[in-house]
Amino acid sequence: MVEETKTMRGLDAIRLAIEEEMERDESVFIMGEDIGKFGGCFFVTEGLLEKFGPERVRDTPISENAILGCAIGAAMAGMRPIAEIMFADFLTVCMEMIVNQAAKASYMYGGQISVPVTIRVPFGTGIMGAAQHSQSFESWFMHVPGLKVILPSEASDFKGLMKTAVRDDDPVIFFENKRAYYLTGDVPLDKDFKIPFGQARIFTEGDDVTLVATGAMVQESMIAATKLTEENIHCEVIDPRTLVPLDKKTILASVEKTGKLIIVDEGCKTCSVSAEIAAIVVEEGFQYLKKEIIRINTPDVPIPYSPKLEKKIIPNAKLIQEKIKKLI
C-alpha cells in the first residue's frame, strides 16, 4: 500500500497534527496569545477556532506564567493541553512554570501524577526579529530533568513528532524553527502517523564526515552536503529531531563510520546543543574520532536587527562547506 501524502509547509503540518489530535481526543485543547481569530503569530492555528470553538481554542491575556500555569494545572487534572508561547524569547518570563512546576511534579510528588502538557515555541532567526524575537534557547531546557525537548526541521517530522508530543504523558517543549515553518515536505495523511521520541533522522548517508544539525541548520547542512558530492565528498547529515531524549546511538554509529564530526547549531556556542553532543561523542566515542570535533554555532552575541549583520553570524551552507573541506 502506498502511503498517502500531501505536500505542505512545516507550519501546515503542525496545524494538521493539532487538528487531528483535537478531533481524536476531547481532552486536547490549545491556548495562547492571539491563537484564535488571528490564527497565531505564524498562523499555525489558523482555522482551529472556527472548527473547535472558543472553549478548546483559547485566546489568553499576555500572561505567560498564567498561560503555562493554566496548561500545567489542566494537565495535572487529566487534560492534554497544548500551550503556545508566541516567541521562544518569551520563555524567560515563564521559566518558573516550566522548570520548577511541569518538570518537577512527577518526581517531587513521588510519581503520583504526570503532566501531559505540550508547550509550543517558535524560535530562531530569519525574520529580522532582533535581540528579543530570534533566540534559540533549546539547550537551556536540555539541562532540566523531567522535560522532553523536541526540535524538528522538516514538515513530516513536525506532524509525526507533534502527535507523539500530544499523546506523551510527560511535559514536552516543542521548538518550532521559524525558517522550517516555510519549508515544504511530503506529509503522511495517516491520522496515526507518529514519530517516536529518541530517534534521529538521517537525511543523507555518507562515509566522509558526520554532520549533526538541528532546525534551520539541517537545510543549510543539506545544501552544503549536496554541493560537496560534486567534489566527491560524502557527508552524513543527521537531525536528532529530539534533544531529550537524544538518539546518541545513531550519532555515535555515524562517527564510528566517518571518524569526523561537525555539529551545526543556531544557538550561541557556549553551553549549546553542540557542546552537549560534542561532549557525548568525546566521552563515549573518543576512539572513533580521527580529527577534532568542529562546532559551527552562532557566536555569543545578541541577534542583531540588520539582515546584513544577522547573516554575518548565523551559520550557513557556505560556511559549513568551508569547514568540511578544511577538516577533510
Binding site: R56, N65, G69, I72, G73, A74, A77, M79, E96, Q101
Partner: peptide, 16 residues
C-alpha cells in the same frame, strides 16, 4: 506564588 497559576488549570479542566 506558584500554586495559583496551577489552580487556574485545574479549575479550567473542571469547567471544561
Amino acid at each position: 506564588g506558584a500554586g495559583p497559576p496551577l489552580a487556574l488549570g485545574v479549575a479550567l479542566a473542571s469547567k471544561m
